[in-house]
Design a binder for these strands. Structure first.
Lengths: 138, 138
DNA sequence: CTGTATCCAAAGGGATACTG
DNA sequence: CAGTATCCCTTTGGATACAG
């Protein structure tokens, strides 16, 4: 799973130096596999405002199921992007917090989020124009 | 980082509870729906180096199928992120080019890609540590 | 070369029920 | 409150065949 055998051993360097940049295990692909899902980025954003409890996150994200919130938080914890703290009260109170690594990622995501908020309307218009044109062609 | 869909305090029993920042149609979620797939970002990156032909893209992205390359390019074109130009030779030669909007998105993605390339190894280590700890617990 | 259509297996994710 | 387990439908995407 480590070190993709994109090139055969002893194989001379390929013409395109970026050839293996897009190998199965390139960092970009790994990251996309992890945060390209429906919920991870939204949860990271919420935690960017400070530690939050499970139930608060559940209410804050429109449409997320208990299963997916739990599952996503587990993934983020496993990646070292958030930490989980359980206060031994009855009933138990659990708080999730962004780690420094998670904060870094959120910062990097900031530019993308900004782009989405200023440009997605344009993208929507483009889609409508494209679809209208395709209808004409028929 | 705001998307203008805030809590409406005073309507505790709205039939459609969309009074939060992360509504179904918030820009971030829309963008993730579009580029959170396996291939879009990789193709945008390749086109960042300049116009590319279909067959070049096909060879450059490890493991992509003809169907998915075609489908992803069609989506990107529909969004106004790339343009398609077909040279009427025999056989036909098709070139895909990043639009200014696509270039903008790629720039915004740059910070994320940089983060992935410097930090995904750490994430991998975190995952291994997490998994090892869970094994101990059993 | 650049696609589209179809079939099918695997993964994603919602609803529900149950537990400490 | 904070989860886990199960069922099951939907979506994703690979393989293959075919066409302009």
């Amino acid at each position: 799973m480590q070190d993709g055998t994109f090139f055969s051993p002893g194989h001379p360097e390929e013409t395109t130096p970026r050839g293996n940049v897009f190998a199965r295990d390139c960092p970009t692909r790994k990251l996309l596999d992890r945060i390209g899902d429906t919920w991870s980025v939204l949860i990271l954003r919420l935690l960017g405002d400070g530690p939050q409890r499970f139930s608060v996150l559940k209410r804050a994200v429109d449409g997320i199921s208990q299963k997916m919130l739990s599952q996503t938080l587990r993934s983020l914890e496993r990646d070292g992007l958030v930490t989980r703290h359980a206060e031994p009260t009855v009933p138990v109170s659990v708080t999730y917090t962004l780690t420094p690594l998670g904060r870094e990622l959120l910062d990097a995501l900031g530019f993308l989020i900004d782009w989405a908020e200023t440009r997605m309307a344009t993208v929507g218009a483009n889609q409508r124009r494209y679809d209208a044109r395709r209808l004409e062609e028929i």
